[in-house]
Simulated assay, not measured.
Amino acid sequence: ERCGIPPTFPHLLGFPLHMALLLRPGFPFPVIGLVHLENTIRQHVRLESADALEIEARFAGWLAHDKGQALAIDTRALRAGSLVWESRSVYLRLGARDIRGRPHQPVATPDAPLSTMLRLDLPASLGRRYAKVSGDANPIHTSAAAARLFGFPRPIAHGMWSKARAIAALLPNAPVETLTAAIAFKTPAFLPGGACLMAGPPGGTRLIELRDRRETKPHLRGTLAFRAAA
Rank of each mutant, 00 (worst) to 15 (best):
M117V: 15
I99M: 06
G135R: 04
T75C: 13
W85R: 07
P106K: 02
S125R: 11
V107W: 04
P103D: 01
T109F: 01
R128C: 06
P113M: 02
V90M: 02
V84E: 06
A80V: 03
A124K: 08
V84A: 12
R93Q: 15
H104R: 09
R128T: 05
A77P: 09
A137W: 11
A108H: 07
R76V: 13
A96F: 13
S82L: 14
D111H: 09
A144I: 07
R119Y: 04
A124D: 12
W85A: 03
D98L: 10
V90T: 15
P103H: 00
W85D: 07
T75I: 10
R129Q: 11
R93W: 04
R97W: 11
P103E: 00
T142W: 07
A112N: 09
L122I: 05
A96I: 14
P139I: 11
V133Y: 06
R100L: 10
S134T: 01
V133K: 09
P103M: 01
P103R: 00
R102V: 02
P123V: 00
R88A: 11
S82T: 14
L126C: 02
L94M: 13
R79H: 13
P103Q: 01
I140P: 10
A131V: 01
T75L: 12
S134P: 00
A96S: 12
A77L: 13
R129E: 09
N138F: 06
S89H: 07
K132I: 05
A77F: 15
L92V: 06
A144G: 12
A124C: 12
R129K: 06
D121N: 11
S82M: 14
L126F: 08
V107Q: 08
A112P: 00
N138W: 01
R100N: 09
G101R: 12
A80G: 14
L92T: 08
A131R: 03
P123C: 08
A96E: 11
D121W: 13
A146E: 13
G101I: 02
S143Q: 07
R100A: 09
R93G: 11
A96P: 14
R102H: 05
Y91A: 08
H104Q: 00
D136S: 01
L126G: 02
V90A: 01
L114Q: 00
A77C: 15
D136W: 01
A112D: 12
L118W: 02
A146Y: 14
A77M: 15
G135N: 09
L92G: 05
D121F: 10
L118H: 13
P123T: 05
K132C: 03
L126V: 00
D111T: 10
R76W: 14
T116M: 14
K132V: 01
R88N: 06
R102L: 13
A145W: 15
P113G: 08
A146K: 12
R102I: 05
D136N: 02
H104L: 04
T109G: 03
Y91C: 08
A147M: 05
A137P: 00
L94Y: 15
L78V: 12
S125H: 03
